[in-house]
Simulated assay, not measured.
Amino acid sequence: MKNFLKISIVVFGFLLCLSCNESTKHKTIRLAHGLDVNHSVHKAMLEMAKNLEEASGGKLTIKIYPNQQLGSERECLELLQIGSLDMTKVSVGVMENFAPKMKVLGLPFLFRNKEHSFNVLDGPIGKQLLNEGEKYWLKGLCYYDAGSRSFYTKDRPVKNPEDLKGMKIRVMESATAMDMVRSLGGSPTPISWGELYTSLQQGVVDGAENNPPSFYLSRHYEVCKYYSLDEHTVLPDVLVVGTHFWNSLTEQEQKWLQEAADKSVKYQRKLWAKSEKEALDAVKEAGVEIIHPNKEPFAKEVQSVYNSYKDNKEMYSLIQEIKQTK
């Protein structure tokens, strides 16, 4: 009996040491995304990594894989679902395939202005939507500013909706984005971001739609010489963590990661405002014609998208009720 007690004490002590070692074990978070390293979101992720390492005393670090090194946005989400990747950044337009209620954020001309969008995303509605993908093993941590999306084309400018008729326009794998382009008379063509430059060159599509920094950093302006700032959607990016990884973290580690993500949002928004102006100046210098069309005809044509939106009209109404000032 005495020997059994001695052995039990030794085993208990050994397991306790293992537990202690496990709790202090260093963890490296694998984060993949499709953006260029000069993009404000990538820079914000570097800032997040620095803050997280400092807050955790080196227990948590982040290794970032940019430029679609580990796959497209959809592929990275699928890697998160099976636990082969820990974090990624995707557009809300792609995330809506995994968290259907996020579809509301892709509705064209949803927000009155940037301040309105921030008040929605930073408030209860935004936080609720971040958790919508948890049953699919995906948890949103925060939103990054991705500005407004507008059309850019190769052969002719888009000054009104009629100009889009017959054009093949690249869109994300988003039902809302495809419905929007169809409502304007265009032919939506889903193509991964990494394949778009070649697709534009080869005439697979006639144009695409995105924000100024993405248009510039992707060098799509080398092919498309018309940029029409209709600003049809304000579609944020989402920083997503796989729940397999999230649930493996202690409560303290989760707090460190969430706080580092929140700090990176404020940092990124400052960078974004600067990068938008720099991008527009750069593409204009490169010979791109910047067009400022009347937005009302575009807003009128996309009403059919709203008429078909039946998933969560209550959420849309709540968004419209949000005031522009906090």
Rank of each mutant, 00 (worst) to 15 (best):
K270L: 10
M178N: 13
K300M: 00
T198M: 14
E173M: 12
T250Y: 04
Y226V: 05
F298D: 03
I169P: 04
T233P: 01
D281A: 14
Y216A: 11
S187C: 02
A273F: 03
K274C: 00
L239A: 11
A175V: 11
T233A: 13
W272V: 00
G185N: 12
A286M: 03
L257H: 09
A208M: 09
A279I: 03
R269Y: 04
N312Q: 02
L229N: 04
S214V: 12
M172L: 11
G287A: 07
T233R: 05
H232E: 13
M178Y: 01
G186Y: 01
Y309P: 02
K225E: 07
E253T: 07
A299P: 00
E259H: 10
L217F: 15
Q252H: 02
V283I: 15
D179T: 02
R219Y: 15
H244G: 01
S199W: 04
F298E: 03
L280P: 02
R219S: 15
S187G: 01
P188F: 08
E301L: 01
V171M: 06
V265Q: 07
W246Q: 07
S308Y: 00
H244Y: 12
S308D: 12
W246K: 09
L249C: 14
G185D: 13
A261P: 07
A282E: 08
T243I: 08
V265R: 12
S218Q: 08
T243D: 08
E253F: 07
R269G: 07
R182A: 12
Y197A: 05
W256E: 10
M172Y: 09
Q201L: 14
S264I: 09
L249G: 11
L196N: 08
F215W: 09
K263I: 05
T189V: 15
E222P: 02
E209M: 14
V223S: 05
H292K: 11
I191Y: 04
S214P: 00
S275A: 14
D230C: 07
I290L: 14
K270M: 07
Q202G: 01
V205C: 15
M167T: 04
S183I: 10
M167I: 06
A279G: 01
K277Q: 13
P236T: 14
A282S: 15
N247R: 12
A260P: 02
K300A: 01
Q258W: 06
A208G: 11
Y309Q: 02
K263D: 14
G194D: 08
V305H: 02
V288W: 03
N307Q: 15
Y197I: 01
V240S: 06
A299M: 08
Y309H: 02
Y197E: 06
Y216Q: 13
H244N: 12
V181G: 03
H292W: 08
A260Y: 03
E253N: 06
R182F: 05
L280H: 03
L271K: 09
V181E: 05
P293M: 04
D206R: 03
K270V: 12
K168A: 12
S174C: 10
A175K: 13
A177T: 03
P297Y: 00
V265S: 06
V305A: 04
N312F: 00
Y227G: 06
D281I: 04
L229E: 13
D311N: 12
F245P: 06
Y226T: 05
S192P: 03
P212M: 10
S187K: 12
T233E: 14
I191Q: 05
T233Q: 14
K277S: 11
P236C: 15
G185T: 10
K300E: 05
S264T: 10
D237I: 05
S264M: 09
L217G: 08
V223I: 15
D230W: 02
K310V: 06
